[in-house]
Design a protein around this nucleic acid. Sequence first.
RNA 1: GGGCGGUUAACUCAGUUGAUAGAGUGCCAUCUUGACGUGGUGGAGGUCGGGGGUUUGAGUCCCUCACCGCCCACCA
Length: 839
Amino acid sequence: MEKRYNFTQIEKRMQEFWEREKIYAFDKNAPGEIYSIDTPPPTVSGSLHIGHLFSYVQAEIIARFRRMQGYNVFYPFGFDDNGLPTERLVEREEGIRANALPRGEFIEKCRNTAEKYVNEFKDFWKTLGFSADWSLEYQTINPDVRKISQQLFLELVKSGKAYMKESPVLWCAECRTSIAQAELETADIESAYVYVPFVLAGNEAENAAHMKDHMSEDAKPNPATLIVATTRPELLYGCVCLFVNPSDGRYKDFIGKSVKVPLYDYEIPILADDKASIDKGTGVVMCATFGDSTDAEWYAEHELPYRKIILPDGTIAADVPYIAGLHVREARAATVRLLDERGLLLKSDNIVHTVGVHERCGKEVEIIPSRQWYIDVLTKRDEFLKAADGINWYPSQMKNRYIAWVENLKWDWCISRQRYFGVPFPVWYCEECGAPIFARPEQLPVNPLEIELCGTCDSCGSTSFVPESAVFDTWATSSVTPQINERLGLELTPMSMRTQAHEIIRTWAFYTIVRSLYHTGNIPWKDIMICGWVLAKKGEKIGKSKNNSESEPKALIETHSADVLRYWTAGARLGMDTFFSPDELSIPKRFITKLWNASKFAIAHLQDFDIADSDCADCIIADSDIADYDCADSPFTDKPELLPIDRWIIERVKVTADRAAKLLYEYEIGSARHEIDGLFWKDFCDNYIEIVKERLYEPEIHGVTERKSAQYALYYALLNILKLYSIYVPHISEYIYQEFFRRHEKTASIHKTLWVKPLPVERLAGEPSSANDRIILFGEKVKDVMAEVRRYKSERNLSMRAEMDELVIKTEPEFAEWFRLTEKDLKACTNAKEIIFTT
RNA sequence: GGGCGGUUAACUCAGUUGAUAGAGUGCCAUCUUGACGUGGUGGAGGUCGGGGGUUUGAGUCCCUCACCGCCCACCA
């Protein structure tokens, strides 16, 4: 083995080896229970950041772990390339607007861009050594996936879960499309409460200038006027009524009367509703179509008229006096100026308040009525909540986020987008009566814009149809990833595990649960593993911050290696956000060096070790009865009689494998790694290797059989430590395996070997007096002796090799014999001339 | 406003079911030609955010407050 580990060359070589030998190829007929992983298809949004690395690596470690537990791991990758993120990326990169180009041309650009980034992602995953079978890959723009998406949509239409309606919908004027509640983000913006007077009809004599006097007294109602505080004065012309709370004594007498809208002078009624809060503003609220979601609710409940103010492009409708054609923001300012000029601006308070913005562009969201497709999510809330109990959430508190989201749902899931690059709706409409006509199953996938529909309308007999031009919300397709994976002819649902980050619980996790319940009546997966974020500094998600080029993951891999980054990733607790700084990588780097050097040492001493080509270590693993170390009866004729300290390290490896496995079954990647680290650094390197060093070098002093015992334990311990680490650092562990162990082991790759099997349950719960426990305890005693000697020498500034005349060790009688058998080793590593054992 | 996390050594974090507080980094000292100076060994360093309570005993359980972060609600 080389003096230094050259990760640049070796990582690449190992990746090529895995690909060439198809080490991770999935075979559905292979033995072992299938463990299927629903991994996020990343959206093509241009940024490949360390957050991706972080969350995907955590799941990848689990995939490797399950494989080494004997599961048949199904681990397909996908890419979510359609949808708004790709469109916005193209718009940004090319400096164009989608609607300024012919539809086909824009879609073509999106397709090219998606392709480019998909390849970039794929290369990235490969560089990180992901154990995925790329033949299972899917892309959401591909015909087979589009077909599944359309099929399942039609299924929902049939069952009445998907429906079309004309109604107020969340609308992004920047992206010019409807959006869903889940795509809302909040942002604090500066605004102003504008106080305006609504004069009771028939009391117009009361003039507004007079009103100002009343403002001083805390907006006390005037018998003839109601004062409204609004942040949306530009919607005055859309005002359809005022609301007061029915139990608000101040306004009781006003209910049922009419007022005149300031500036525009038309009459509207004063209505009562519980949703009007007494203590907000003046207690009188104007309802416009539409200022917020409450307006939309009132509009439906009170059957209010619709007054169009805002157009889909975010400008004011042409028939609105004074502000027609202006953008909402300009219109607001213009209206305030106008109110002021007319003496209708009673007061204006600057405030900062939270508004809903579109997550993709950050622009304020409006509510505009239009015809859209929805999936019903409001009526089955209880089932969605119940489903959460059937799923194991890791970490468990993440379930709360899901529950909070489901309980707070206000809108059905709008799945139509007035965009271009996505899965088309397989729908046409009758030009005469507007009835929808759906594509036939054999037509799918279909783009209605490209196919002229022939036939007659069932409802009215018309023969002319118009195609639906909207496309699906990207989540409408990615919410059926379990079904997409089943296209390969496997029965998967519920899948074993979903992995994702916490910010998409309300979208991806929620929507997948909805779709799964609707399509299969079952939960989509048994476990859900939720990762945290990587933060650049306090509270700043790295993907969203700037000047993070040093954290550019590709560059990091090139300078530090994939294994180093993977090892770092595994240090985080599941679900917890983590800070990243390149300084954090010095520890993983040190670890790689240590693993390399320890292996180099062990292997150098194993060159002459005579092992039959019999998968020696695997056999031993299966033979957990080795616990009693009755070597004479062992089926392995080659196996020497083991000295107690050699038994100790073997036992420690087994115990560690067992503990780490238990943690990994709970998705505790970090704790499992700490467990393994403890074994490797403390027991294996600091103690075991030091203890047996001389025995390995000097068989003349210690004996040939004794040396063989050390070799045996060394072989067993190192091989199995490498296996434990191989889920975290697959490259270096594979390389060392190939360089040495492969000669003796049957398995082609370390990644196809199995971990030491967990000890039988009885033994785990068992008496501390079992041989296994006693040997572990003995090891602790020996370590105590070592520590004491080291402290003695260190305190006297002596070399660790300094000679000691006499070492007195007090032992319990039960360990006396074992200590006696370890005497030569102890003499060697303490350099004591004489050791005296007392009890 | 509702909810969830976090607050432990200078730094980054572990601390399972209550019983002398742990690791790594950093710091100090020291060792060193047989895996590793990208090292070994040892040491110093902590009122476990504050305040109450339960208990023989609380970092751990309960209440409360503070600060940090996130999720949700809040657009009158």
